[in-house]
Design a protein around this nucleic acid. Structure first.
Lengths: 244, 244
DNA sequence: TCATCGCAGATTGTTAACAATCATGGAAAT
DNA sequence: ATTTCCATGATTGTTAACAATCTGCGATGA
């Protein structure tokens, strides 16, 4: 039984990351995630392997690996023999994502409200106010991706990697959903909602804060328009190669 | 701008799966997931590409793709130039996973309790009783993976793909956690807990049912032993090639 | 005896060539 | 004018060979 018995190795976990990082593959993923988050990559956009490979001065091999990761995250639609496309979430998927976000953020917000430190409250407040400014100045894409950043920062304070990782994916999918079904008016009453949320967190009312972040998500979902107009083409190369 | 402008394609979503399926890659993933769920693949086991490739009569190419998926699900630890290993969850990760499961299953259970149909209650009851039988007959591995199946069946009735997918991964990670830190006594009082859960679901008490499934998870987590003895070697080929 | 070094052998990482499939555009027919 | 069909180019899927790295073992020396 020489070849078939596999040894247990000692867990050198602390030294190496679970997935190899600091490589081109991750860079591609990050770039595409950023573009999705910013609303620059509309759902349905085709992502040709060769184009992306040239943009990163690398080979198709690594682009394919990146696409697979993004497909796991439901950001990219891999179609056999046809290639990779930015995912186009359906109505049911949109509702599922919002419901899942409420389930997770409710919990993280409750935890965070009970454990947050004073200086961290300041950081969150600044994020909220910055996005309000961005919005009022007409910089709407920036404001939207900024709010995603706020949700992520908030959740990260719960110090639970499983919840944070799941939420990160859901937030990116939300960006796609907003790209398809979002309306300008969806954000009209949001600043008020977020300020209220921050006040509840600041005063330590964890249950009310949990309810309030649910409310934020409810309000956003309620303003979606499920009969959106068709969308225009996109200059993929410019988007991918533009340094943020 | 002939080459750089990418077209938006119409969403043929309903026809094709988001990731190509019915292929060797998925088969490999399923097989390894099943082995992990059954507790047959202890954390730390090395998974050589060539060995798996031979078992499935395929090439390394597809095995690597499968490993990437499993790494994404935190079931496999990909180490550069060293290969793939069954993931070895740490203590913090274990606690995070349980907390995340409570957050998700609390919600799904509440939804299910309000929407479940009569015949579906029967199916769940049978699952609970079957695992109780398995346990009492000494078929413990089967009982444990059966309970995982129960949690999954229950959550699936909430009809939320985002939550179900996230939970599926968390449940598999729980199998790994039990493999490392699990103790025999962890399941002593479980049958009683699950019967109580089913009674609450049956009587439509959604809030209490939600609390009860949290309790199930609390009880399980509380009985973990974070100073486990070292574990023995494993015959990988036998496990992978054995038809369940 | 023990530790260190270095050399195969084994395993994984990467590449480029080839095969398979699809998309585009034009010719022919109705 | 419209539709159908086919050829051709473009894109993706797969393979096998090669390069890089690690692991284990034995030789060497203290």
């Amino acid at each position: 039984m020489g070849k078939t018995a596999e040894k247990i190795v000692e867990p050198k976990r602390s030294l190496r990351p679970r997935i190899k990082s600091d490589d081109v593959e991750s860079a591609i993923c990050e770039r595409i995630r950023a573009a999705v988050s910013a609303g620059d990559l509309p759902p349905g956009t085709k992502l040709p392997e060769e184009t992306i490979a040239e943009s990163f001065a690398t080979k198709r091999f690594f682009v394919r690996a990146a696409f697979q990761r993004l497909a796991f995250e439901n950001l990219v639609d891999l179609q056999k023999n046809r290639g990779a496309f930015v995912a186009w979430p359906g109505v049911k998927e949109a509702r599922d994502v919002f419901e899942a976000r409420r389930a997770i953020e409710r919990v993280t917000t409750e935890i965070v409200t009970r454990t947050i430190l004073t200086y961290q409250i300041g950081v969150l407040w600044r994020q909220v106010r910055d996005q309000e400014l961005n919005w009022n100045r007409g910089n709407r894409k920036l404001a939207i991706s900024g709010i995603s950043g706020f949700h992520l920062s908030l959740a990260a304070l719960a110090h639970n990697e499983a919840l944070t990782a799941a939420l990160e994916q859901l937030i990116l999918r939300t960006s796609l959903i907003l790209g398809v079904y979002g309306t300008p008016r969806a954000f009209a009453t949001m600043p008020e909602q977020y300020r209220l949320l921050m006040e509840l967190i600041e005063s330590g009312q964890s249950l009310l804060a949990a309810r309030q972040i649910e409310r934020c998500l409810f309000v956003l979902e309620a303003e979606l328009d499920f009969y959106p107009p068709p969308r225009r083409d996109v200059d993929l190369k410019r988007i991918i190669e533009t340094v943020g």
